[in-house]
């Protein structure tokens, strides 16, 4: 799927917003079905995922292994429901498969497995693995003099893992301007608010100090995401897009509540959430 450059931006934004609502509804149904999952982070990252897969990235859903595809590494593998629902929206996964999320012998593990699901580039789950892998992908593109780009999504609490900063140094050293990191800056991690746990501020300055080009956006605004992710790279520098997001975005009782990091909705909560999301669609 190529970037929809010719489509009128407001129309594209509307389409991405609607797709994001559909992905959230599917993701929450999946978590409810599995009685496991991480819906808070699914919902904070959904708009980023949808913008990438439905517009920004050069991919071919009929040929997910196309060598010249853009790569996407989902470092925050626990947001797998949002990833699988987005892959389905992009035509890379049968929508019916979503109903098997975490079932015995399902292809849809709680954390994604690239050997089971086409379109998944890396096996993640333990945090701090994605950025090093994405750095390797971007290095490979440079070695091969190929034009494809690599995108990677991490959480913000995830950046407490030191391996990210090893990779940050390396990506800057090798001038990987074909690498785009998106940080899902939802300010909540499993145990508490991120800033009450380990203060990540000033996050943008940290990345700038590491030699990265930094862009801050509203991570729920598809127009801002499109501009940040589709824009030309700053030559010689990797890009860090800090997507300011709300954990549990779109559902009143989930928003900004640490309990929904890995909360599972009751039947009534699912119905209310689906209803609220449907109203947002109107």
């Amino acid at each position: 799927m190529s970037a929809t450059n010719t489509e009128e931006i407001p129309g594209l934004e509307r389409r991405l917003r609607q797709a994001s609502i559909a992905v959230r509804r599917n993701a929450l149904r999946m978590v409810h079905h599995a009685k496991l999952g991480h819906p808070g982070g699914d919902f904070s990252s959904t708009d980023v995922l949808v913008t990438l897969y439905l517009s920004v990235m050069k991919i071919d859903p009929r040929n997910p292994a196309w060598p010249n595809r853009d790569r996407f590494v989902m470092s925050k593998g626990h947001s797998s429901a949002a990833l699988y629902a987005t892959l389905a929206a992009a035509g890379m996964l049968e929508e019916a498969a979503l109903a098997t999320y975490m079932d015995p012998l399902s292809l849809l593990n709680g954390h994604p497995d690239r050997n089971k699901v086409a379109g998944v580039e890396a096996n993640t789950g333990p945090l701090g693995h994605g950025l090093p892998i994405a750095t390797g992908c971007a290095l490979a593109a440079k070695m091969q003099r190929a034009a494809w780009r690599t995108f990677v999504l991490t959480g913000d609490g995830e950046l407490q893992e030191g391996s990210n900063w090893e990779a940050a140094l390396c990506a800057a050293q090798y001038k990987l301007d074909n690498l785009v990191l998106i940080v899902d800056r939802n300010r909540i991690q499993q145990g508490d608010f991120t800033e009450s746990t380990i203060n990540m501020n000033p996050l943008g300055e940290k990345w700038r100090a590491f030699g990265w080009h930094v862009i801050e956006v509203n991570g729920h605004n598809h127009g801002e995401l499109l501009r940040a992710l589709s824009g030309p790279a700053l030559p010689g520098k990797p890009t860090c897009v800090i997507a300011n997001t709300i954990k549990g975005h779109g559902v009143s009782f989930m928003e900004n509540n640490p309990a929904w990091h890995h909360g599972v909705p009751t039947d009534a909560q699912l119905a209310q959430a689906l209803d609220e999301l449907a109203k947002e669609e109107l």
Binding site: A122, P132, G136, L139, A140, M143
Partner: peptide
């Protein structure tokens, strides 16, 4: 950690 992760990324590409 980055050495092995970066190698994995190189291999995947």
């Amino acid at each position: 950690q980055n050495m092995v992760g970066t190698s994995a990324g190189l291999a995947s590409a």
